[in-house]
Write a protein that binds this DNA or RNA. Structure first.
Lengths: 113, 113
DNA sequence: TGCAAACATTATTATATTTGAATATAAAAG
DNA sequence: CTTTTATATTCAAATATAATAATGTTTGCA
């Protein structure tokens, strides 16, 4: 199974607005490069560069249809990540219970700032 | 609610091996800076830099305990992301069903390579 | 009051990422 | 075979990120 390190690396690869946009679209189905050009407001070479990066890390792959390259999702972690990015999180995590222990000390002291 | 763009930005911030390591530890409870120094094999200033970055983006916060800073998790998206990073994904997503349609064409053509 | 512990900040350097421009390739059409 | 369409690759410039080294700040305590 894939190491945590590899998954963090993958996270770095997909943590880019355009690439997330690409992956969101691919979740809805197969798309070719010129499809992406339509709704991503960037040049064709730049689309290809982002696709190449995602391919290099095994996130996506493609089929050929004549001279079209039909891209699709390959890495099963992607839908889970996109789902979390679309989930609504409100508020903050609860402050830790009173007096938890670190290696060096206990608190409460003062709230910061 | 937080925009998708902001969440992608957050993803970029946490997509670093050391910061993921820090967040993993914080899920188990409160930790002070010297606690981190023990198991992260990096200098104290570097620990502080990573913590400062996570703080700046609201991912973590801290309480004071004398001269210790007791860090804890603040952003509720973090546990969900860590959970996915630890989940075991095997194989690949199923190839798209026969003959899906892009704006420009249909396939099947040939499988790549 | 003065010192040491715990932590933060700044500046510098090294390296990686992103984009745009130019060019290349491969397949289909003519 | 030549042209066109669809897409990829390469290179260079601009920018961002990461680590290290040096220094600063705050708090508790002798």
């Amino acid at each position: 199974m894939r190491s945590l390190g590899k998954k963090v690396e993958l996270l770095r690869i997909i943590a880019h607005p355009i690439r997330i946009n690409i992956l969101e679209e691919l979740i809805t189905g197969v798309k070719c490069v010129s499809d992406f050009e339509e709704f991503l407001d960037i040049s064709q070479p730049n689309v290809s560069q982002h696709l190449a990066l995602l391919r290099r890390y095994g996130v996506i792959d493609y089929y050929m249809d004549g001279r079209l390259r039909c891209y699709f999702l390959r890495d099963p972690i992607i839908p889970d990540i996109i789902k979390i990015l679309k989930k609504d999180y409100m508020g903050e995590l609860p402050a830790p219970a009173c007096c938890p222990v670190t290696k060096k000390g206990k608190y409460p002291g003062e709230r910061r700032r």
